[in-house]
């Protein structure tokens, strides 16, 4: 009877059904149910999870490359060397270069102000920097049309000076900067906050100027986080579709970025060419993920202990 006593004690705790005697007996023998499930359950759950991931993520990714090369290497090369495709690739690289640069400068400036000083309203400022993440890409494009478009709030002065923003490069760049706005800053701010200000204070009190403190102390401390932010920012900048689609005007060879070029080809039933261009962006995504995985281990080194 004594062996059963723990079961009697445990019963009021377990109202979802009394534990079975056999389990209690096993528990007494030291074979208590450990922190895991029976092997059959483990295998079943793993298979369900892998099937789900394969279905929703693995297959679409695989399909991009299969469709891109289905019509042979010659068709693939032809699709990518088409003048419109080349123009789209060039525009995408240009837009990404400008917006990543802008966001790196902003990210460094903002994280210096936020992480190295204590001031009122800091968390509000961080929330505002994160804001573009929660705005629909289409809305992001629309707000620039409302501002700079032919019916926009600033239409009159822009026309007077003959400046074209919407349906031109500046609009595409602005929309891209908007959707990638938080990427660099949000990687830097938490890390720089954790690292504190002791090293900078030491450098300043030893006579270093503010700039040389930044370049010699702060920047080396956050270089991997910066690179990480740049990587994610670049992937999003090159792949942005919704916001750019609203402001671009889809002029072939002029204001078509790679994602927009993919859309046009697809809608014209040029599936092979469409997937060929898509495979380049998919490759970029894969490279980004691999670099991200490598960087994450480096990032762990930057965390203060």
């Amino acid at each position: 009877m004594s062996a059963l006593e723990p079961a009697a004690l445990a019963q009021p705790l377990a109202s979802d059904g009394p534990p079975t005697l056999t389990k209690q007996a096993r528990a007494q023998n030291g074979h208590r149910p450990a922190r895991t499930e029976p092997a059959a359950v483990r295998i079943a759950l793993t298979l369900i999870a892998l099937a789900f991931l394969g279905l929703f993520i693995g297959l679409p990714l695989l399909l991009v490359f299969v469709e891109a090369f289905k019509r042979g290497a010659a068709a693939y090369v032809a699709a990518l060397s088409d003048p419109d495709a080349l123009a789209a690739i060039r525009l995408t690289l240009l837009v990404a270069a400008i917006s990543v640069t802008a966001n790196v400068i902003f990210g460094l400036v903002a994280s210096w102000a936020i992480a190295k000083f204590e001031f009122a309203g800091k968390s509000l400022l961080i929330t505002l920097i994160d804001l573009p993440f929660s705005v629909s890409p289409v809305v992001a494009g629309l707000i620039y049309v409302l501002l700079f478009g032919s019916q926009g709030l600033l239409a009159a002065p822009l026309q007077a000076w003959d400046i074209k923003i919407i349906f031109a490069l500046p609009g595409i760049v602005l929309a891209t900067i908007f959707v990638t706005f938080p990427f660099v800053a949000r990687e830097l701010i938490p890390l720089m906050q954790e690292q504190g200000t002791a090293e900078e204070e030491a450098a300043i009190s030893l006579g270093a100027s503010g700039l040389s403190t930044f370049f010699r102390v702060t920047l080396p401390n956050v270089k991997w986080a910066l690179l990480y932010g740049v990587l994610l920012c670049n992937a999003r900048a090159m792949g942005e579709f919704g916001a750019v689609s609203v402001v671009s005007g889809h002029v072939r060879g002029l204001t078509n970025t790679m994602p927009l070029h993919i859309e046009i080809l697809y809608n014209e039933y040029q599936f092979g060419a469409s997937f060929a261009v898509a495979s380049l962006l998919a490759l970029l995504a894969l490279v980004t993920l691999i670099a991200k995985t490598v960087l994450e281990s480096r990032l762990a080194e930057e965390e203060p202990r």
């Binding site: 892998l50 991931l53 993520i57 693995g58 297959l59 679409p60 990714l61 399909l63 991009v64 469709e67 994610l232 992937a235 090159m238 792949g239 942005e240 579709f241 919704g242 790679m258 994602p259 927009l260 993919i262 859309e263 697809y266 599936f271 469409s274 997937f275 898509a278 962006l281 998919a282 995504a285 894969l286 980004t288 993920l289 691999i290 991200k292 995985t293």
Partner: peptide, 25 residues
Amino acid sequence: RVVDAIIDIPFALPTAVAGIALTTL
């Protein structure tokens, strides 16, 4: 580790690419 890494594919893959891939699939 590979499975863990591909979870981020929807973050990294441009939405237009995901769109045409899912549609074809």
